[in-house]
């Protein structure tokens, strides 16, 4: 066991539930650790959450570092960062993965800054590989792969010298593994100490709701982009999605324009979907969007711009106005569906 190359995964939990993205990262962490001949260590912070350690082990952790403390009951930047930073300093992990959730995106940069390590946000793939710079070869680094520059290029980033190699990953990007109830692992308790400066922020109220749409597991997604033009026109997208029993997706441009809420966003900074059918309406198809839907089994693209990049991954291309084409499709469905 190569203890110098530990892969750490931050376990995000709320109200006694481990976030799906953390379980996905445990599976990915397992794969990376096997390649490195090392082990996966899960960081589980909270209060009254010791029972979750077992689940982390079933999903791939070899060791769970458990910080159970009343001040950790609800996520707050400073106490969580303090525990994580002290553990990183003391144990020097090689790789440290967090979900690219509001919590992961709040915590990861705080840790990276404190230990002066590199951090890559919203990776869509992680691999192990070598890096050569001048005469020096760094072996077995973490390749942090993400779309960049408006999603028109795919960048591979490495952190050759300063470790841990920190990365955040969106939910749904890595595959969730089935829990293996025969797996065994260690649980080690850490006893955090806080001082007044760590506790200057209080949570007065926290109200989280379950997602209104179930995009991630939808088998049909009808998605609209900037080309839909208005919130009124977006009704057509809802109508077609409803008719086909699918969910509504959107490009970032449509969300930014206020046509539909952010939970519908598909892409690198939204949800990753793998439906049986994806209908892209008025979506140009920047890489950031395609990163979230290009695994769809069938893609239909409707766009007035014949040069739109979305056409290059579409199985069915319709160069035309979605305001005409979608009603025709709705009509045809009514006429032909049993």
């Amino acid at each position: 066991m190569n203890k110098d190359r530990e892969v750490w995964v931050f376990i995000e939990q709320e109200a006694g539930e481990i976030a799906t993205v953390s379980l996905e990262l445990l599976a990915k962490g397992r794969e990376l650790a096997e390649g490195l001949g090392s082990r996966v260590c899960a960081l589980l912070f909270g209060h009254g959450i010791a029972h979750l350690a077992e689940k982390a082990i079933y999903h791939g952790a070899d060791l769970v570092l458990l910080a159970d403390h009343p001040e950790l009951a609800l996520y707050r930047t400073l106490p969580y960062a303090r525990v994580a930073i002290e553990l990183v300093r003391a144990r020097q992990p090689y790789i440290f993965l967090l979900g690219a959730t509001p919590i992961g995106r709040d915590l990861a940069p705080r840790i990276a800054s404190a230990v002066r390590a590199g951090l890559t946000a919203d990776c869509t793939d992680l691999q192990i590989g070598d890096f050569q710079r001048k005469d020096r070869v760094y072996s077995d680094l973490l390749y942090q792969i993400r779309p960049a520059f408006g999603g028109n290029v795919i960048a591979t980033i490495v952190n050759p010298e300063r470790h841990p190699q920190l990365a955040t990953v969106r939910e749904g990007v890595m595959r969730l593994a089935e829990p293996d109830r025969t797996r065994r692992g260690e649980v080690e308790r850490v006893e955090p100490q806080f001082d007044a400066r760590d506790l200057v922020l209080q949570v007065l109220k926290r109200e989280m709701r379950p997602p209104a749409c179930n995009l991630k597991s939808a088998s049909i997604v009808v998605a609209g982009g900037a080309g839909v033009g208005s919130k009124e026109n977006f009704r057509l997208i809802h109508e077609l999605a409803h008719l086909l029993g699918g969910e509504v997706g959107a490009s970032r441009a449509a969300v930014d324009a206020g046509f539909v809420s952010a939970e519908h966003q598909v892409g690198q900074t939204g949800v990753t979907v793998r439906p049986r059918l994806y209908i892209a309406c008025g979506i140009s198809g920047a890489v950031q969007h395609r990163a979230g839907m290009d695994q769809s089994s069938k893609i239909i693209a409707i766009n007035t711009d014949p040069a739109a990049p979305i056409f290059q991954i579409a199985h069915y291309k319709i160069v035309g106005d979605l305001n005409a084409v979608i009603p025709w499709m709705i009509h045809a469905y009514h006429a032909n569906a049993k």
């Binding site: 890559t120 942090q144 795919i154 980033i157 952190n159 050759p160 991954i313 291309k317 160069v319 009509h331």
Partner: peptide, 25 residues
Amino acid sequence: SPTKVLKIDYVVLETSESRQVPATP
């Protein structure tokens, strides 16, 4: 800057089997 860019790949779009559908009823 601890992060280094190992490489940049320009996205080459794959044209799998695809078909033009006329924009007509």
